[in-house]
């Protein structure tokens, strides 16, 4: 009996975070091929679309996968709509009444664009995922909050700027970000390219919290001692490829760091799968010169990756971590004498 109790306690009390590895034995090929089969389907009949995408699938996670994949591979990011949003949200940032009036009107434009052109901005993605999942009988929420990318000006991050989803599968909540998973905006041409990133599907909550902070902190899904908003603002910059390579980002904890000359700086990560240590590189720039180097030491124990670097000259540096060609994260270092 005691053994049973112990097993029971271990099963339910041990802090296991909801993540994709819970479904490592699930084959998503059937769900993905259904999403592909209905590529280009219209958004005029959501119930039917949801049904087509899910009826032949047996598990909730596969049903959700088909819906999520369909949205990520069929909905484009609308840059002009985004610019309109940015302009107006700036204008009304101190006037919530005007903001709400504008939102009521803007919402209609957004949904019209979504149905007619299958283009949207992030709330549209997350909204559509929620709507289709709910119609398939799945519990799914739209989460509002703060999203941080390399170009986010954190000094201006006063109101929520991003939306994503939480979905309940086998009685556990999971996180995903369909907007960022769908593709990328070209910084020069502003054109959108579909480029599905699987890393944002049922992402590890701790990694997700590095660049997603929900307005309601219960959606961090991090139990005790969750990070605060200040922790989030001080966190390093991580990129889409961090989600395809990392399970966890452990150190450095901050974007901006101050170190002494010849002090050893340590970078610590938990990888999703093992890599070749030689693939790890640092790009160090002081604004004038870029240099790509191997860290002083690279240690890989199972999937724990530890890098060490020593700055030999004083100055201010941006340090980018790369695995192969994948840009993972960025930190700044002020090196003092």
């Amino acid at each position: 009996m005691n053994l049973i109790k112990l097993v029971f306690i271990l099963l339910f009390v041990s802090p296991s975070y909801a993540q994709i590895s819970d479904f490592k034995n699930t084959d998503f090929r059937k769900a993905d091929s259904l999403a592909l089969a209905y590529k280009g389907a219209e958004l005029t009949n959501l119930l039917l679309l949801s049904k087509k995408l899910t009826t032949n699938l047996n598990t909730d996670v596969e049903k959700f996968r088909a819906i999520y994949m369909w949205v990520c591979t069929n909905i484009e990011n609308d840059y002009s709509l985004y610019l309109k949003y940015e302009r107006k949200s700036k204008r009304y940032q101190n006037d919530s009444l005007e903001f709400n009036l504008w939102q009521a009107d803007f919402k209609k434009t957004v949904f019209k664009t979504l149905v007619e052109d299958q283009k949207t901005i992030c709330t549209g993605y997350a909204y559509l995922v929620k709507k289709l999942a709910n119609l398939a009988g799945l519990e799914c929420e739209l989460i509002h909050g703060y999203g941080r990318t390399s170009t986010t000006d954190i000094d201006k991050l006063h109101v929520p700027n991003h939306s994503w989803n939480a979905v309940k599968l086998n009685n556990k909540w999971y996180l995903c970000d369909p907007t960022w998973a769908s593709g990328k905006q070209n910084a020069e041409t502003f054109g959108f390219t579909f480029q599905y990133n699987d890393g944002y599907f049922l992402a590890e909550p701790k990694l997700f919290a590095v660049n997603h902070f929900p307005a309601d902190t219960k959606w961090l899904l991090l139990g005790e001692n969750p990070p605060t908003f200040t922790d989030f603002l001080n966190a390093p910059v991580i990129y889409g490829k961090a989600y395809t390579n990392l399970k966890q980002h452990n150190a450095p904890q901050f974007l901006n760091n101050t170190v002494k000359k010849h002090e050893t700086v340590t970078f610590e990560y938990e990888l999703l799968s093992t890599i070749n240590c030689e693939a790890v590189k640092l790009i160090i720039t002081n604004g004038h010169n870029n240099k790509t180097i191997r860290p002083n030491s690279t240690t890989l124990t199972n999937t724990s990756l530890v890098l060490e670097h020593e700055f030999t000259t004083t100055g201010f540096y941006d340090v980018h971590v790369l695995i192969g060609n994948d840009l993972i994260s960025t930190y700044t270092f002020e090196v003092k004498g």
Partner: peptide, 15 residues
Amino acid sequence: IAIRGALEVDTPYKS
């Protein structure tokens, strides 16, 4: 719901 938007970019961060 309120409409929000943040874009995914892979431009390296520049302090």
